[in-house]
Amino acid sequence: MAMTISLIRTLLLYIVIIVAVRLMGKRQISELQTSELVVTLLISDIAAIPMQDTGQPLVSGFIPIAVLVMCEIVVSVLMLKIPKFRRVVCGRPIVVISDGKLIQSEMKRLRMSTEDLGEQLRQRNVFSLDDVAYAIIETNGKLSVIKKPDKETPTAGMMGVALPNTGIETVVISDGILSEFAMKLCNKSPEWIRGILHAKNIRQEDVFIMTANTKGDYNIIPKERGTSL
Protein backbone atom coordinates (compact mmCIF):
# COMPACT_ATOMS: atom_id res chain seq x y z
CA MET A 1 0.00 0.00 0.00
CA ALA A 2 2.88 2.37 0.80
CA MET A 3 4.25 1.76 -2.72
CA THR A 4 0.94 2.75 -4.28
CA ILE A 5 0.77 5.83 -2.09
CA SER A 6 4.35 6.73 -3.11
CA LEU A 7 3.42 6.28 -6.76
CA ILE A 8 0.38 8.57 -6.53
CA ARG A 9 2.29 11.15 -4.48
CA THR A 10 5.17 11.17 -6.95
CA LEU A 11 2.76 11.82 -9.84
CA LEU A 12 1.02 14.61 -7.93
CA LEU A 13 4.29 16.24 -6.90
CA TYR A 14 5.60 15.95 -10.45
CA ILE A 15 2.58 17.93 -11.68
CA VAL A 16 3.09 20.49 -8.91
CA ILE A 17 6.77 20.90 -9.83
CA ILE A 18 5.96 21.34 -13.53
CA VAL A 19 3.37 24.02 -12.63
CA ALA A 20 5.86 25.67 -10.25
CA VAL A 21 8.62 25.78 -12.86
CA ARG A 22 6.21 27.14 -15.49
CA LEU A 23 5.01 29.84 -13.08
CA MET A 24 8.58 30.86 -12.33
CA GLY A 25 9.25 31.38 -16.03
CA LYS A 26 11.43 29.95 -18.76
CA ARG A 27 15.15 30.01 -18.17
CA GLN A 28 17.85 27.50 -18.91
CA ILE A 29 19.65 26.30 -15.86
CA SER A 30 22.88 27.91 -17.02
CA GLU A 31 21.18 31.32 -17.19
CA LEU A 32 19.69 31.26 -13.69
CA GLN A 33 20.75 33.83 -11.15
CA THR A 34 22.21 32.38 -7.95
CA SER A 35 19.00 32.90 -5.97
CA GLU A 36 16.93 31.26 -8.72
CA LEU A 37 19.24 28.25 -8.81
CA VAL A 38 18.99 27.89 -5.03
CA VAL A 39 15.18 28.04 -5.19
CA THR A 40 15.10 25.44 -7.99
CA LEU A 41 17.30 23.07 -6.02
CA LEU A 42 15.29 23.69 -2.83
CA ILE A 43 12.03 22.85 -4.60
CA SER A 44 13.40 19.51 -5.76
CA ASP A 45 14.69 18.69 -2.27
CA ILE A 46 11.40 19.67 -0.62
CA ALA A 47 9.37 17.62 -3.11
CA ALA A 48 11.46 14.53 -2.31
CA ILE A 49 10.46 14.48 1.37
CA PRO A 50 6.74 13.59 1.08
CA MET A 51 7.56 11.42 -1.96
CA GLN A 52 9.72 9.12 0.11
CA ASP A 53 8.07 9.42 3.54
CA THR A 54 4.38 8.54 3.32
CA GLY A 55 4.01 9.51 7.00
CA GLN A 56 4.56 13.15 6.02
CA PRO A 57 1.43 14.93 4.83
CA LEU A 58 1.51 15.93 1.17
CA VAL A 59 0.74 19.48 2.18
CA SER A 60 4.17 19.61 3.88
CA GLY A 61 5.60 19.55 0.34
CA PHE A 62 3.00 21.67 -1.43
CA ILE A 63 3.05 24.64 0.93
CA PRO A 64 6.84 25.26 0.95
CA ILE A 65 6.96 24.85 -2.83
CA ALA A 66 4.05 27.27 -3.29
CA VAL A 67 5.66 29.82 -0.95
CA LEU A 68 9.04 29.55 -2.72
CA VAL A 69 7.38 30.05 -6.11
CA MET A 70 5.45 33.05 -4.79
CA CYS A 71 8.63 34.60 -3.34
CA GLU A 72 10.52 33.97 -6.56
CA ILE A 73 7.82 35.66 -8.65
CA VAL A 74 7.62 38.67 -6.32
CA VAL A 75 11.42 39.03 -6.15
CA SER A 76 11.76 38.79 -9.94
CA VAL A 77 9.09 41.48 -10.44
CA LEU A 78 10.79 43.72 -7.86
CA MET A 79 14.17 43.17 -9.55
CA LEU A 80 12.60 44.25 -12.84
CA LYS A 81 11.05 47.41 -11.39
CA ILE A 82 13.75 48.45 -8.89
CA PRO A 83 17.36 48.39 -10.17
CA LYS A 84 18.77 48.96 -6.65
CA PHE A 85 16.91 45.90 -5.40
CA ARG A 86 18.33 43.89 -8.26
CA ARG A 87 21.84 45.00 -7.33
CA VAL A 88 21.27 43.90 -3.72
CA VAL A 89 19.95 40.46 -4.73
CA CYS A 90 22.12 39.67 -7.76
CA GLY A 91 25.11 41.92 -7.35
CA ARG A 92 26.85 43.68 -10.22
CA PRO A 93 28.84 42.36 -13.15
CA ILE A 94 32.54 42.57 -12.31
CA VAL A 95 35.25 43.47 -14.80
CA VAL A 96 38.26 41.20 -14.33
CA ILE A 97 40.14 42.23 -17.48
CA SER A 98 39.99 45.85 -18.55
CA ASP A 99 41.71 47.17 -21.66
CA GLY A 100 43.87 44.04 -21.77
CA LYS A 101 44.98 44.34 -18.12
CA LEU A 102 44.13 41.77 -15.45
CA ILE A 103 42.45 43.40 -12.43
CA GLN A 104 43.88 41.30 -9.61
CA SER A 105 41.92 43.05 -6.84
CA GLU A 106 38.61 42.11 -8.49
CA MET A 107 39.76 38.53 -8.99
CA LYS A 108 40.70 38.38 -5.31
CA ARG A 109 37.26 39.78 -4.38
CA LEU A 110 35.61 37.05 -6.48
CA ARG A 111 37.95 34.40 -5.00
CA MET A 112 38.73 33.56 -8.60
CA SER A 113 42.02 31.87 -9.37
CA THR A 114 44.01 32.25 -12.59
CA GLU A 115 43.13 28.62 -13.37
CA ASP A 116 39.41 29.44 -13.10
CA LEU A 117 39.89 32.40 -15.42
CA GLY A 118 41.92 30.36 -17.90
CA GLU A 119 39.28 27.62 -17.93
CA GLN A 120 36.44 30.07 -18.58
CA LEU A 121 38.40 31.81 -21.34
CA ARG A 122 39.15 28.53 -23.08
CA GLN A 123 35.45 27.64 -22.95
CA ARG A 124 34.88 30.91 -24.84
CA ASN A 125 37.47 29.82 -27.43
CA VAL A 126 40.00 32.33 -26.16
CA PHE A 127 43.43 30.72 -25.75
CA SER A 128 45.56 33.74 -24.98
CA LEU A 129 45.15 36.58 -22.48
CA ASP A 130 46.65 38.89 -25.08
CA ASP A 131 43.50 38.45 -27.22
CA VAL A 132 41.20 39.84 -24.54
CA ALA A 133 40.24 43.51 -24.28
CA TYR A 134 37.55 43.07 -21.60
CA ALA A 135 36.39 40.13 -19.55
CA ILE A 136 33.35 40.50 -17.33
CA ILE A 137 31.99 38.08 -14.75
CA GLU A 138 28.21 38.41 -15.04
CA THR A 139 25.81 38.17 -12.10
CA ASN A 140 25.04 34.54 -12.96
CA GLY A 141 28.74 33.66 -12.75
CA LYS A 142 29.36 33.34 -16.49
CA LEU A 143 32.26 35.07 -18.17
CA SER A 144 31.65 37.45 -21.08
CA VAL A 145 34.61 38.26 -23.29
CA ILE A 146 35.23 41.17 -25.67
CA LYS A 147 38.27 40.48 -27.81
CA LYS A 148 40.70 43.10 -29.05
CA PRO A 149 39.63 44.36 -32.51
CA ASP A 150 42.56 42.75 -34.32
CA LYS A 151 41.82 39.41 -32.66
CA GLU A 152 38.13 39.36 -33.52
CA THR A 153 36.83 36.86 -36.06
CA PRO A 154 36.02 38.92 -39.18
CA THR A 155 32.36 39.05 -40.12
CA ALA A 156 30.84 39.19 -43.59
CA GLY A 157 29.90 42.83 -42.98
CA MET A 158 33.54 43.75 -42.13
CA MET A 159 34.75 42.16 -45.39
CA GLY A 160 32.06 43.84 -47.46
CA VAL A 161 30.51 40.52 -48.42
CA ALA A 162 26.75 40.56 -48.89
CA LEU A 163 25.26 37.32 -47.58
CA PRO A 164 21.77 36.25 -48.68
CA ASN A 165 19.09 36.69 -46.06
CA THR A 166 17.56 33.26 -45.58
CA GLY A 167 15.34 34.34 -42.72
CA ILE A 168 14.49 31.88 -39.98
CA GLU A 169 14.76 28.12 -40.37
CA THR A 170 12.21 26.01 -38.50
CA VAL A 171 11.18 22.38 -38.20
CA VAL A 172 7.90 22.28 -40.14
CA ILE A 173 7.39 18.51 -39.94
CA SER A 174 8.50 16.41 -37.01
CA ASP A 175 7.83 12.67 -36.99
CA GLY A 176 5.18 13.06 -39.68
CA ILE A 177 3.30 15.86 -37.95
CA LEU A 178 2.96 19.33 -39.46
CA SER A 179 3.67 22.25 -37.12
CA GLU A 180 1.38 25.27 -37.65
CA PHE A 181 3.54 27.42 -35.38
CA ALA A 182 6.74 26.60 -37.28
CA MET A 183 5.03 27.27 -40.63
CA LYS A 184 3.87 30.71 -39.45
CA LEU A 185 7.40 31.51 -38.25
CA CYS A 186 9.00 30.78 -41.64
CA ASN A 187 6.03 32.19 -43.53
CA LYS A 188 5.17 29.04 -45.42
CA SER A 189 1.77 27.46 -46.04
CA PRO A 190 0.73 23.80 -45.68
CA GLU A 191 0.01 23.77 -49.43
CA TRP A 192 3.60 24.77 -50.21
CA ILE A 193 4.90 21.97 -47.98
CA ARG A 194 2.52 19.41 -49.46
CA GLY A 195 3.55 20.55 -52.95
CA ILE A 196 7.19 19.84 -52.15
CA LEU A 197 6.40 16.46 -50.63
CA HIS A 198 4.29 15.58 -53.68
CA ALA A 199 7.12 16.58 -56.03
CA LYS A 200 9.54 14.44 -54.01
CA ASN A 201 7.04 11.61 -53.91
CA ILE A 202 7.14 11.38 -50.12
CA ARG A 203 4.14 11.09 -47.82
CA GLN A 204 3.94 13.40 -44.83
CA GLU A 205 3.72 10.39 -42.48
CA ASP A 206 7.05 9.12 -43.83
CA VAL A 207 8.95 12.31 -43.01
CA PHE A 208 11.17 12.14 -39.94
CA ILE A 209 12.11 15.80 -40.07
CA MET A 210 11.59 18.59 -42.57
CA THR A 211 13.07 22.03 -42.10
CA ALA A 212 12.27 25.12 -44.15
CA ASN A 213 13.34 28.75 -44.07
CA THR A 214 11.72 32.02 -45.11
CA LYS A 215 13.67 32.08 -48.38
CA GLY A 216 12.16 28.74 -49.44
CA ASP A 217 15.10 26.41 -48.86
CA TYR A 218 14.15 23.10 -47.32
CA ASN A 219 15.66 19.88 -46.11
CA ILE A 220 13.80 16.57 -45.82
CA ILE A 221 14.98 13.54 -43.86
CA PRO A 222 12.69 10.54 -44.35
CA LYS A 223 12.06 8.02 -41.62
CA GLU A 224 14.22 4.95 -41.47
CA ARG A 225 12.43 1.70 -40.94
CA GLY A 226 11.48 1.26 -37.26
CA THR A 227 12.23 4.83 -36.16
CA SER A 228 9.61 6.98 -34.50
CA LEU A 229 9.83 9.62 -31.72
Partner: peptide, 11 residues
Protein backbone atom coordinates in the same frame (compact mmCIF):
# COMPACT_ATOMS: atom_id res chain seq x y z
CA UNK B 1 2.52 35.96 -12.63
CA UNK B 2 2.14 38.58 -9.91
CA UNK B 3 -1.58 37.81 -9.68
CA UNK B 4 -0.71 34.11 -9.49
CA UNK B 5 1.72 34.88 -6.66
CA UNK B 6 -0.97 36.84 -4.80
CA UNK B 7 -3.44 33.99 -5.32
CA UNK B 8 -0.89 31.52 -3.93
CA UNK B 9 -0.36 33.76 -0.89
CA UNK B 10 -4.10 33.98 -0.20
CA UNK B 11 -4.65 30.22 -0.61
Amino acid sequence: RLWAAMAILVV
